[in-house]
Deep mutational scan, measured.
Amino acid sequence: LVGSPDACTPLEAPESLMLKISANSTRPARWYTKLGFFPDPRPFPLPLSSLFSDGGNVGCVDVIIQRAYPIQWMEKTSSGLYIFRNEREEEKEAAKYVEAQQKRLEALFTKIQEEFEEHEENTTKPYLPSRALTRQQVRALQDGAELYEAVKNAADPAYLEGYFSEEQLRALNNHRQMLNDKKQAQIQLEIRKAMESAEQKEQGLSRDVTTVWKLRIVSYSKKEKDSVILSIWRPSSDLYSLLTEGKRYRIYHLATSKSKSKSERANIQLAATKKTQYQQLPVSDEILFQIYQPREPLHFSKFLDPDFQPSCSEVDLIGFVVSVVKKTGLAPFVYLSDECYNLLAIKFWIDLNEDIIKPHMLIAASNLQWRPESKSGLLTLFAGDFSVFSASPKEGHFQETFNKMKNTVENIDILCNEAENKLMHILHANDPKWSTPTKDCTSGPYTAQIIPGTGNKLLMSSPNCEIYYQSPLSLCMAKRKSVSTPVSAQMTSKSCKGEKEIDDQKNCKKRR
């Protein structure tokens, strides 16, 4: 109730008294419902499709977690901009900030120290002519301050210290240490004051960084298909173990806002609040099968299926890095191949991790964006804020396939070189210089010749093996016929022998 500070009966309610309700937590009652309090006072679950971006807080949702994404760090700059970074980018930014802060402190320390020493020189007592001390007078000096003044005013301080006993030297050094500590304390105090003054003048000296964990959730219902992003700010360590993919939860007290992502089908996004609570519930296998697809590394050949539609429009995969293309002013491209020479491209909208993504490396990629409307010579996936790349993946769904590919291919360099030759012919399919190759594209001691009776295949011979290549004459076969791919002698994967690749006429013309 709002509009009246005092309690009153319903019949005596003033006009200013109103009931504040939230559209996302309220639903019309049946016409035959008896007036009064609802029998169950707990918030009732609502489907995600019924929520409004400007409808206020949500009392309860019953959902399945489809995807749990890596932690992100959001920084609010002094200009009011919000920058999201992944773990690697945040580590680089934090190290850069620490380095800049250290340089700033060193410069400030040097400046204050110079000012302090200059102040000491100006306030030093006038110079007194040195007077010679007798040995008896030197032995009588016991106080550290007296010893310090005697050495300071001596014509030859080192010569005078040579007459000091061990106790006198100890007292002198203690006094010097005390003066130095006092000096450093004053300098630190001045630095602290200068830093506080600088922070008040320049807010950009300190970073305002907050962690956020984003989950993709879908309503626990057979009819619900569209997913929504849930953001959890400053998540606790307990939530990481509680909220997992493929589990069902009832989540209470969420805030809604309009989705800013153009790639999301839903026009709302959810955010956890201080009152948000999570309750795990049992799940039906029948419903789970329809709305949740576990993570798995997809084979490149599946992308050729025209009816292929990945869950959440995201894919995980494993491949060999064939080529990395970076041009000034353009997004980087990385070309991958599997052990069967199926190729695809990844366009990067994020920072390219060159420590991991290097030519002839086997890598695992997670959360790549799938956009079927993208048209190019090769299938193109997109690396966004949630994408993760690793040369030694720890995720369970990567382990078997990654180790199998790593052990199957004995010579990665040869595989990547041959895949790069195939890639060049695909990318330059419309270039007349590449339509009829005039130079031998083989490497090493290999020689090529057409063998009669082998279906116009190019036979590559070497001292140790024979390698069959598909001739350009036989590539443009009828649609839906199996097309063989170049496989090196010591690199042929057993998994490729039974694999059928379906190419249309367009792909046939582009492949060598």
Rank of each mutant, 00 (worst) to 15 (best):
G80E: 05
R85L: 05
E90D: 07
E91Q: 13
K92E: 12
A94V: 14
E99A: 10
Q101K: 14
Q101R: 13
R104I: 10
L105Q: 08
L108V: 12
I112N: 05
F116C: 09
E121K: 13
R131C: 12
R135S: 13
R139C: 15
L141S: 06
D143V: 06
G144V: 11
G144D: 11
Y148C: 08
Y148H: 09
V151G: 05
A154V: 14
A154E: 12
A155T: 11
D156V: 06
D156E: 14
D156H: 05
D156G: 06
S165R: 10
S165G: 09
L172W: 09
R176T: 14
A185D: 11
I187F: 13
E190K: 13
K193N: 15
A194T: 09
D208H: 15
V209A: 05
V212M: 06
L215W: 05
R216C: 06
R216H: 06
E224K: 13
S231G: 10
R234H: 09
R234C: 11
S241Y: 14
E245K: 02
E245G: 00
G246E: 04
Y249D: 02
L254P: 06
T256I: 15
K258E: 09
S259A: 12
S263C: 09
Q269E: 06
A271P: 03
A272V: 14
T273I: 11
T276I: 05
Q277H: 15
Y278C: 10
Y278S: 06
P282S: 15
P282L: 10
I287V: 07
Y292C: 07
Q293L: 12
R295W: 00
R295L: 01
P297S: 14
S301G: 14
K302E: 11
F303C: 15
P306S: 08
F308V: 11
C312F: 14
C312G: 15
C312R: 07
S313F: 14
S313P: 15
E314D: 11
V315E: 00
D316G: 02
D316Y: 01
L317P: 02
G319R: 01
G319V: 03
G319E: 01
V321F: 01
V322I: 14
V324F: 00
V324A: 06
G329A: 13
A331V: 15
P332L: 03
V334I: 13
Y335C: 08
D338E: 00
D338G: 01
E339K: 10
Y341H: 15
L344R: 03
L344P: 00
I350T: 15
D355G: 12
D355Y: 06
D355N: 15
I356T: 15
A365E: 02
A365P: 02
S366R: 12
S366G: 08
N367I: 01
N367H: 10
N367K: 02
L368R: 00
L368H: 00
L368F: 02
Q369R: 15
Q369P: 15
R371Q: 13
F389S: 02
E395K: 14
G396V: 14
D413G: 13
K422E: 12
L423P: 04
L423R: 05
I426V: 13
L427P: 07
N430K: 12
W434C: 08
